[in-house]
Design a protein around this nucleic acid. Sequence first.
DNA 1: TCCTATGTTCGATGTTTATGAAACATCGAA
DNA 2: TTCGATGTTTCATAAACATCGAACATAGGA
Lengths: 120, 120
Amino acid sequence: MRHPNPEEMVLVEVLGALSDPIRVGLVRLLADGRERGWGELRAPVAKSTLSHHLRVLRDAGVTRTRQEGTRCFVALRRNDLDVRFPGLLNAVLEAADGDDIGAHVGLTSSIDAVTEAPEA
Amino acid sequence: MRHPNPEEMVLVEVLGALSDPIRVGLVRLLADGRERGWGELRAPVAKSTLSHHLRVLRDAGVTRTRQEGTRCFVALRRNDLDVRFPGLLNAVLEAADGDDIGAHVGLTSSIDAVTEAPEA
DNA sequence: TCCTATGTTCGATGTTTATGAAACATCGAA
DNA sequence: TTCGATGTTTCATAAACATCGAACATAGGA
């Protein structure tokens, strides 16, 4: 599980990591600085694909994944990114918010926990 | 030759266009706001490949290509980008300058015009 | 009209990427 | 130790991408 140091981060790799709606959605989700549980993340893809996207973000240095026992927690490396590429993340986040990119990505808790009413 | 209006520009498409060293090099070259002749651009790729890269940038809305007679002139759409995605281009340019990304891309005039001395 | 310079487009090729299913590895609980 | 939950990795596939050379289109000039 690779986590590049700030000086190892490559600009075009970061931009490439952010050139996908699902990944931008994930970044937006983590933009509040809170660490999120892997299973808490909802995206309209298979879990192997979600794992792939999280790896692209992680490898580029955008996110950090922490393992605790059998589960993982993901967080945005906002500070590292701000130091390495000042202004970049903010610009992307504001643009993404403005266009509501990656809206299909969400948290289990945001809707399901409430909507998922006792059916049947 | 498509040139998207600012409102038609797509964030992830712009980021994708900027996720290649050669294209970043081209953008850096145009960052001074000057329009450059196509033939003036030097990149370590075949001209068909260069044409391809310029098209990716153009399609994303990063550059504008103007045709005049039999030749073309390329310019950075800095203002349009700044309005559509505030701060994004500057952040990318500063990061790219800091890492000297796309250094293989240059202008004919920068070296050749001087080096290209009367041989023989 | 014919030639030439300038880019674009097309066709082919090899690489990378996104995707999902299935197998796997790991850790905690029973 | 066996089971179950949680992600990762592997495998396969289809699409996208970077690259080049060759063919093409166009606009001036001879």
